[in-house]
Amino acid sequence: MKNEAILSSDKMFTSFRFNSHNIRFRTSPRLERYTKVIEWDKGYLVVMAKYEGHEEEEGI
């Protein structure tokens, strides 16, 4: 699908895929899931995330 981006996490790594690009980076081992994409612009990705041991979501 054109113009579809996928953000996923697996253990200590996050993967961001868009078109033919796949960017992987390290994340906290306490990351449970990404809950919302706030902004994606000019190379920055702002998301809300849920971490193990924290009741509230955090913006990262």
Results as ranks from 00 to 15, higher is better:
60 I>Y: 09
47 V>G: 03
58 E>F: 14
29 P>W: 13
31 L>D: 07
52 E>V: 13
5 A>H: 04
11 K>R: 09
37 V>P: 01
32 E>V: 15
51 Y>L: 15
8 S>T: 10
15 S>L: 01
43 G>L: 03
45 L>V: 10
18 F>S: 03
16 F>H: 04
28 S>K: 09
1 M>P: 10
38 I>L: 13
7 L>H: 04
44 Y>P: 00
34 Y>Q: 06
45 L>G: 04
42 K>G: 06
46 V>W: 02
59 G>V: 14
21 H>Q: 06
50 K>V: 01
41 D>K: 15
24 R>A: 08
4 E>H: 05
38 I>H: 05
58 E>S: 15
46 V>I: 09
30 R>F: 15
38 I>V: 12
27 T>S: 05
11 K>A: 06
44 Y>R: 15
31 L>C: 04
22 N>K: 07
17 R>C: 06
28 S>Q: 07
19 N>P: 02
36 K>S: 11
14 T>Y: 00
7 L>T: 02
22 N>C: 04
12 M>V: 07
41 D>P: 00
18 F>G: 02
42 K>R: 14
9 S>Y: 06
28 S>W: 10
55 E>I: 15
9 S>G: 02
32 E>R: 15
12 M>N: 09
2 K>P: 03
55 E>G: 12
40 W>E: 11
57 E>W: 03
33 R>W: 04
16 F>D: 00
11 K>I: 02
16 F>V: 02
46 V>E: 08
41 D>I: 14
21 H>D: 01
10 D>G: 02
29 P>L: 10
9 S>C: 05
12 M>Y: 14
27 T>A: 02
43 G>M: 03
49 A>M: 05
13 F>E: 14
42 K>T: 03
17 R>F: 00
40 W>D: 08
30 R>N: 12
12 M>K: 10
51 Y>P: 08
18 F>V: 01
50 K>G: 06
17 R>W: 00
22 N>Q: 07
13 F>C: 01
53 G>M: 09
29 P>S: 13
40 W>Q: 11
24 R>G: 04
3 N>M: 10
10 D>E: 06
37 V>A: 02
46 V>N: 11
36 K>T: 12
14 T>P: 08
27 T>V: 13
42 K>W: 14
37 V>S: 03
34 Y>F: 12
32 E>Y: 08
25 F>A: 01
55 E>F: 15
24 R>K: 06
27 T>E: 09
37 V>D: 04
59 G>D: 05
33 R>A: 12
36 K>A: 10
19 N>I: 11
50 K>C: 06
8 S>G: 03
33 R>T: 14
8 S>C: 03
6 I>T: 07
18 F>L: 07
7 L>R: 01
58 E>P: 07
18 F>H: 09
4 E>I: 13
51 Y>T: 12
31 L>E: 07
7 L>C: 01
33 R>C: 13
3 N>S: 13
43 G>E: 03
13 F>R: 06
13 F>M: 10
37 V>I: 04
50 K>Y: 03
60 I>N: 12
27 T>N: 12
36 K>M: 11
38 I>E: 09
32 E>C: 14
6 I>C: 08
14 T>M: 07
4 E>N: 07
43 G>Q: 05
3 N>H: 12
48 M>N: 12
13 F>L: 08
6 I>S: 06
51 Y>R: 10
15 S>G: 05
56 E>K: 15
48 M>F: 09
43 G>S: 05
58 E>G: 12
21 H>M: 08
36 K>E: 15
59 G>P: 02
42 K>S: 11
26 R>S: 11
18 F>Y: 14
41 D>N: 15
